[in-house]
Amino acid sequence: MKKDKIIFWVATLIIFLFEGVMPAFTSQTEMAKEGLRHLGYPEYFGNALVVFKILGVLVLVIPKAPKNVKEWAYAGFGFDFIFASISYICVEGFNFLAVFPLFFLGILAVSYIYYHKISKTVNA
């Protein structure tokens, strides 16, 4: 059980840092805005995305958050990573930037799997 919790929290904290902290501090930089424009998205889309990312990571790290809300947060991040990869493939072709979000999708999957492992042992 302790190993499962450690794996869950390491994976979840990586998602927290990558999807919550980094966007919160860098979303208004010119580089981030140019990245969105380059992919064909309007600036307001980036602002909305950052708000939902911050809310999503808070749901993932707050232990008492309702389970169905956590499921939606996991799904939202899954869609985010998949569509980020698709966006890069459509604009720039298949390269490192297209694969990079899929790496974090894998980390998200680890967090999700271990979240359910921990939930089963707590409820049993």
Rank of each mutant, 00 (worst) to 15 (best):
K117W: 05
V69C: 09
W72E: 11
V99H: 01
G56P: 04
E92Y: 13
L17A: 10
V91S: 09
E34N: 13
E92P: 09
V50R: 10
E34R: 07
S85G: 00
E34K: 14
A73E: 07
L17V: 10
K53L: 09
A65W: 14
M31R: 12
K67S: 15
Y88M: 11
V91W: 14
N95W: 05
I82H: 00
P66H: 15
V21T: 08
E43A: 13
L36R: 15
K33W: 09
R37E: 15
T12W: 01
V110H: 03
V21G: 01
F100R: 07
G78D: 05
A24D: 02
Q28N: 13
F103S: 01
Y88K: 13
I82E: 00
F94G: 03
L17K: 06
I7M: 03
I89C: 02
L102V: 02
K120Y: 11
Y115E: 13
F79K: 04
G106W: 00
G78E: 06
E92M: 14
I7G: 01
V50Q: 08
K2C: 05
A75F: 08
S87I: 01
V51A: 12
L39F: 04
M22S: 07
K3N: 11
S85P: 03
F96L: 12
G56F: 01
S119L: 15
G40Y: 11
E19N: 10
Y41N: 06
E19I: 10
I7C: 04
F25N: 06
G93N: 03
L60C: 06
L13Y: 08
V59K: 07
A75I: 10
P63K: 12
H116Q: 12
V110C: 08
F103V: 09
A24L: 11
I15G: 00
H116L: 15
P101N: 00
K64M: 15
T121P: 06
G20D: 02
I6D: 02
G46D: 10
I54S: 04
S119R: 15
K117M: 09
N95F: 02
T26M: 05
A109W: 06
S119E: 15
V99F: 06
I107E: 04
L36D: 14
G20E: 04
I107A: 02
K53C: 06
I86H: 00
A32Y: 07
L105N: 02
A32T: 13
G76I: 02
V51T: 14
Y41I: 05
F25C: 08
G46P: 08
V57A: 02
W72M: 13
F52Q: 10
G40R: 06
A98F: 04
L108E: 03
F52L: 09
P101H: 00
P101G: 00
V57C: 03
E71W: 14
V50P: 11
G76K: 00
V61E: 10
F81S: 02
Y74K: 07
L36C: 13
L58E: 13
A124I: 14
Y114N: 07
